[in-house]
Design a protein around this nucleic acid. Sequence first.
DNA 1: TGCGTCATGTCAGCATTCTGACATACAGTG
DNA 2: CACTGTATGTCAGAATGCTGACATGACGCA
Lengths: 159, 159
Amino acid sequence: MTQPGIDVTRSVGLALKRAVTSLRTAMDDVLRPLGLTVSQYACLEQLAQRPGLSAAALARLTFVTRQSAHTLLQGLEERGLLERSADPPSGRALPLQLTSTGAALLRSASTAVAAVETHMVSAIDANRVDQLLVDLDAFASALDQEAGPASGAQDELPQ
Amino acid sequence: MTQPGIDVTRSVGLALKRAVTSLRTAMDDVLRPLGLTVSQYACLEQLAQRPGLSAAALARLTFVTRQSAHTLLQGLEERGLLERSADPPSGRALPLQLTSTGAALLRSASTAVAAVETHMVSAIDANRVDQLLVDLDAFASALDQEAGPASGAQDELPQ
DNA sequence: TGCGTCATGTCAGCATTCTGACATACAGTG
DNA sequence: CACTGTATGTCAGAATGCTGACATGACGCA
């Protein structure tokens, strides 16, 4: 029973999972009144910061497949929160952009999500936040390089 | 565009998600040759450390619903990796335990997973690991209390 | 010009996990 | 003993995300 080193009480992986699960639940709770899921919010947020993104590019940024992004975007488009330019400027990629309705909804969502994140972050010493970000990023980088490219999604990010 | 505070480059939530996504992918990669998913591995691991657990208790420990655990356990039982005592000692709870086959497979899985986690953790200064665990735990606790009980799963953990 | 490759959008099917619901078994209370 | 409450196991359906596959448009190259 004394295996290599899976002490549950000090597994970083488990601690990460717990934190993410709690965060996701909390975000779900504040986004539900707005009729958004966490994935949908992530899409809107990215789209606001990078208008004209294609669906495939958006998928990479939100760490899902472009198929998943496709169905998700369909729902958002039907609700009038975003629109896709009818004219493909270059290849097949259709630039996406928020409608004014979508932008307004995103503002509410951003405020709510920011409150959740602020509350979470306030649970630790402010001086450690920056270091924490660096460490988490180091984790992702270490794991991604190990497994070869295309770890988070099916392609590299285009930057 | 200058909203409350959703600077993507320094969002703790996003950093957490990236790290967890990368970790999950890496674990999937090493567990796939063994025919296990991350969820299945988590079940086996918990079961090895706490033999006699009921399915519902296992669900709480692995942060899923007992319905999900049920279907997952069915698969593991059919593969002969675990067995449930036919006699309910008390209520309806059927104690679960690993078979020797399951224990052997878990040993391989544990070794593989430990290697992934070790590799991830080695990306940061060893002195910060303990603090990181404390901080992540503080995140989860802060979020859980906010949203009321029953955040991670549908019930509190029985400890 | 024609062909191979790649990225994208899209459809279909499958897997996983969730919510909802129901039956059962025990504990507590009258 | 009967009634209520709680915990568990289990089934059914829906939601979400994945893999696989295909068609299309752009680009590089002979």
